[in-house]
Design a protein around this nucleic acid. Structure first.
Lengths: 253, 253
DNA sequence: TAGTGGTCTAGACCACGTG
DNA sequence: ACGTGGTCTAGACCACTAA
């Protein structure tokens, strides 16, 4: 029957470019190597710089490239697996915790946080700021919300804020019996403060992990952790991380 | 001391625009409402269309907007929570499984998949294609890899491929005793086949969930599931989903 | 100071969905 | 046929890093 459509849907240039570059990365480049600059690459492929950048953005999103202003574009190492959920639940700050406590303050949180905590919208909440570093690189920034009612006995702590105060809040939290926890993961973009902590530009893609800690039948604490999506693979489950370091999505077409 | 730097770091236009639009979405628009088209919006804000599009891309990434070619830009509903990990482990296809089996074939997989399966690089592997639909919308596409050695007794099954064959493979899988499972989540971009299944364009951001199923001390099956990052919030843990429908990241600055 | 990636512009044309 | 978002161009200037 008449017409056979050979290429009824022509591939966008940037998508084809992404594929070509991806294959070149596999075969001709090694981790850490610097690519030619964007103007040269665009000229070499005969496209506008904006089109080349669209391809590079894709590859950066997939964790294949790392771009730094003033420096250049380098081949990224495989994503690091970071454990964010284990079978045995544990309070933040428990033994083996990988987070580094930085600061603490006390304020009435945004309405969405108050609702998630099931606390009153006017109740002040302790907010502990923490950060997570793996292999010398910052991978996550966390805000940990703890209603005053969860840690009522904070008397005798003189520090009004700072790391000492943060540790005191966590210590009080451990006195409660943890009944369970659940988490959710979604895509977000780094706001200014997170971006600075993660050494990225604002708007960089991040994986937002929201964890509720349950004690005495209610939400005793809420963690909102922001992970660098370009460098991290979040692992859940019993055996402490899947052993795949090749991207399993990168399969034969 | 002389000069006080008021705005030493001027905010990029597209980032400021993102904030302005985000606040407008909160206060002046409701879910499903159609925004003015990109050319009008750009003119209204006095920027080039490309700059406006950069802001819209951010908001789409955050799940706030939905853009469809030939139609327009609409305000997206809150992300749906989809459960991807439960306390009680279960084989794919077990009672209560939310996946819809579509097809099955038998082939030697890509090297990275073979490595993750700890199967020989030349061993043929059953590949079951499944899809997941929530609230009438496709949210995920899955490839389920099952080495022949995991389901040796497939004799008497006449269908060489197709849904019937897929169900037979899953049925055989259930005869094994599941010892555990672990998962990993990372950001990826949809390839052509996934994009079509998810009703998105190639390159759309996706959350790739890789799950290993353990039986008899080895990896009996490997699942690579691709979720729409714009519409999904992946939930893990005991209580079947966090009850936050407001984005917890969207907090006061 | 030179070179990099990041931002922005003002256009053009194309693919798609709807009427 | 029309209007939408998607792709692409060829430039310009800015912010940052390192020599």
């Amino acid at each position: 029957m008449g017409t056979t459509q050979l290429e009824s849907v022509p591939e966008p240039k940037y998508w084809h470019l992404r594929t070509v570059l991806s294959e070149a990365l596999d075969s001709e480049f090694s981790v850490g190597e610097i690519l030619p600059n964007e103007r040269d690459l665009a000229a070499r492929f005969g496209v506008a710089r904006a089109t080349l950048r669209q391809a590079l953005e894709q590859l950066e999103l997939e964790g294949r490239l790392q771009r730094r202003r003033g420096v250049g574009t380098t081949v990224a190492p495989p994503r690091v697996g970071v454990a964010v959920g284990t079978e045995q639940h544990a309070w933040p700050g428990a033994a083996g915790d990988v987070w580094q406590t930085a600061d603490c303050d006390l304020a009435v949180p945004a309405a969405s946080v108050a609702d998630a905590l099931e606390s009153g919208r006017d109740e002040p909440v302790h907010t502990v700021h923490r950060s997570r570093v793996t292999h010398g690189q910052p991978v996550a920034a966390e805000l940990l919300y703890i209603p005053q009612s969860s840690v009522p006995d904070l008397s005798g702590i003189d520090a009004p804020s700072g790391a000492a105060r943060a540790r005191a809040v966590l210590r009080e939290l451990h006195r409660l019996e943890l009944e369970g926890q659940d988490s959710a993961v979604e895509l977000g973009s780094a706001r200014a403060d997170d971006a600075k902590a993660l050494d990225r530009l604002p708007g960089a893609p991040v994986l937002v992990v929201t964890t509720r800690y349950i004690a005495a039948g209610r939400t005793a604490a809420l963690s909102v952790a922001t992970y660098r999506a370009d460098t991290c693979r979040l692992t859940f489950g019993d055996s402490g991380g899947v052993e795949i370091h090749e991207d399993p999505q990168r399969r034969a077409s």
